[in-house]
Every structure is written in C-alpha cells, then in structure tokens.
C-alpha cells in the first residue's frame, strides 16, 4: 500500500480518489483537458465519442442531485452509457455489503464507477478490492466520500479560479465555513497548495475546524473580517442543516451574523474578488442573496465548468 493507489505503475491516473499527492502537472493536465470540453457545451451537438461503448455506473450511496446530474451529463456528452444507482443506506440494511454491491455491478461489465459514500475512504476500499480481484481496469471516480475528498469539485473550483484569475501563484484565497465536516474544503486546500497559491486562509469558529487544520498549510482565522482582508477568492462552504443548532453552533442567525458572507464583509476583499460556493446554498445562513446573485459571484459558472472538468477526468481515465 505504499504506492498511491490512484496511480498506475507508470504514475498515471488510474482512479481519481483525492487530489492529495497528485502533482501540479497532473492537476494542470486535467484543467487543460477541460478547456476544449467547455467549448463542446457551446456547440449545437454537444457530444464527442470518447467514451462510446463504455458503461459508467453512478453509484450513489448518499443522496445528491447536482453532483450526480453533472456526472451524468458529462458521461453522456462523452457518449458513454450511464446507469444511475441510488443505493442510499437501505441496501446496507438489507444486508448487502458495499463490496458485494461492487462485485455485482462489476459483473455487469462496468468500465467506471462514480462513487459517492458517507464514509471517508470508501472509494479506496473499492479501488483496492477491484485491484485485489484482478479488475483494476474498472476506474473509480470519487464523487465525494465522507469528510475526506471531493476531487472533481476541487478541480472545477481550480478551473474557475484559473478562468478568472489566470495565475495561482499571486493569489490569496479564503475558505470559509464548516471545514471540519467538508470534503470540499480538503480537496480545495490540497489543490490550492499544489498549484502554488501562496496564502490559503480558512475562516471558521473553532467548533467547525479540525484540530490538525494548521498542519494542512493554511492560516487560520476566527475573525471573518480579518480573514477576508485583501483576498482574491472567497470560497464559501455549505453548512449542513443538522449542524446549525446544537453543540457546534448556537443558531443559524448567530452564524450568519459572524460568518455569513454579506456585501459589507465582502468589501474587505480585493475589489475584483470572486465568490464561489459548491452548492446547494443556504441563503441567509452562510451567504447573503445580495452576494450570491451579485457581480462578484461566479457560482453558476462553477456549475457549467463542472461538467467540462468531469468530462476531462472521465475521458483521461477511460478514453480510448
């Protein structure tokens, strides 16, 4: 298990499970590959035949509409056959284990699994199981696992930043919100570091920060106004409903007051700062509508770019 399990023996991407440990060349290669796919979306016929005849299984053990849909669109634009499976937790209660499910679907001649799972590391387990059973030709794409990683989200965020800001090596980027529970934040931080962003800030109350967060190469701010000063990019994180009241936070109102992104707070950032959010947004909790719909917001372009980035990842893994 010393070799990064998502790389093959030649150091090429076999699976996409996390952005951690991937080189700048690999990350830039994915972003470069995504560029022409963004143009495909502008055409009248939005299809290319790169995955013709391949079967992509969307394996969602946790609910998601947006991510699953964008993966589905991406695969279809690459001419793949797409099968959507919402397995939820009910299959576990029926007694079928994760690996049994995987074995059954692999027997249906899958070429790629796009996996979302509530447990951190689940895609590794699947990739290792496929390798151990001689089916390493089936690719695994992580569509979000627990708190661990959401690599295609991280990549589409990098694509968005590059689109608007060009050069990563002069930027100050702030990640704001529930870092503790966020797979998105972890993927963003790894990618920003690899791509050479000199200052990465995280802004959150202590209850929403993992204790080892400073070891990830970020500057930690508890005061949002301090943290936003002079930043080029503000990346907001979603706050899950169940975390708004209880032992982590007292109330959504207080959270919005101190950590919600309002026009006032945004004025502390650079005048040309962009505002991002992985969606779905909680308006009035982590972000003010005036910001979400305002001139700094690139939230909808993120969604569009997400399709191109996912096309790039799938074609690089399984393209003929």
């Amino acid at each position: 298990m010393n070799r990064n399990p998502q790389l093959n023996a030649h150091g090429e991407l076999q699976h996409l499970i996390t952005l951690e440990g991937l080189s700048r060349e690999i990350l830039q290669g994915i972003l470069d590959t995504a560029e022409p796919f963004a143009e495909v979306a502008e055409r009248e016929v939005k299809k290319v035949p790169l995955l013709r005849g391949k079967s992509v299984f969307n394996l969602f053990f946790e609910n998601s509409t947006r991510t699953r849909t964008t993966f589905e669109i991406a695969a279809k634009r690459l001419s793949a056959d797409v099968i959507n499976l919402n397995i939820n937790t009910s299959s576990a209660s029926k007694g079928e284990s994760l690996l049994d499910t995987v074995d059954n679907l692999a027997a249906m001649q899958a070429d790629m699994f796009v996996v979302r799972h509530a447990s951190s590391g689940a895609p590794y387990l699947i990739a290792q199981h496929l390798a151990a059973t001689g089916r390493e030709h089936i690719h695994v794409v992580n569509a979000g696992d627990g708190r661990h990683a959401h690599p295609t989200q991280g990549l589409l965020d990098m694509y968005t930043i590059r689109h608007y800001k060009k050069d990563f090596t002069r930027l100050t980027v702030a990640v704001v919100g529930d870092v503790l529970h966020s797979r998105v934040a972890r993927s963003q931080i790894h990618a920003l570091r690899t791509l050479g962003v000199p200052e990465i800030r995280v802004i959150a109350p202590r209850t929403l920060l993992p204790s080892g967060v400073a070891d990830m190469g970020v500057r930690v701010f508890q005061d949002m106004k301090e943290g936003l000063k002079g930043v080029d990019v503000v990346m907001m994180l979603r706050l899950q409903n169940e975390r708004m009241q209880g032992a982590l936070l007292p109330s959504p109102q207080e959270y919005f007051k101190y950590y919600g992104l309002t026009p006032d707070k945004l004025r502390l950032a650079k005048p040309d700062a962009i505002v991002m959010h992985p969606g779905p947004m909680n308006r009035g909790i982590e972000i003010d509508s005036a910001v979400a719909d305002g001139s700094h917001s690139v939230i909808l372009p993120q969604v569009t770019f997400g399709i191109a980035v996912r096309m790039a990842v799938m074609s690089m893994l399984a393209g003929s």
């Binding site: 951690e20 951190s120 590391g121 696992d145 627990g146 708190r147 661990h148 990683a149 797979r183 972890r186 993992p210 204790s211 080892g212 967060v213 070891d215 990830m216």
Partner: peptide, 15 residues
Amino acid sequence: HDGEISARLGLAGIP
C-alpha cells in the same frame, strides 16, 4: 486519533 492525520483523511477524531 484526533490530530493531523484524522484532519487530513476526514476521519472523526478521538482526542
């Protein structure tokens, strides 16, 4: 263990 590794892997920590 609640620390650098659990933060990085996204595993819930035991301090």
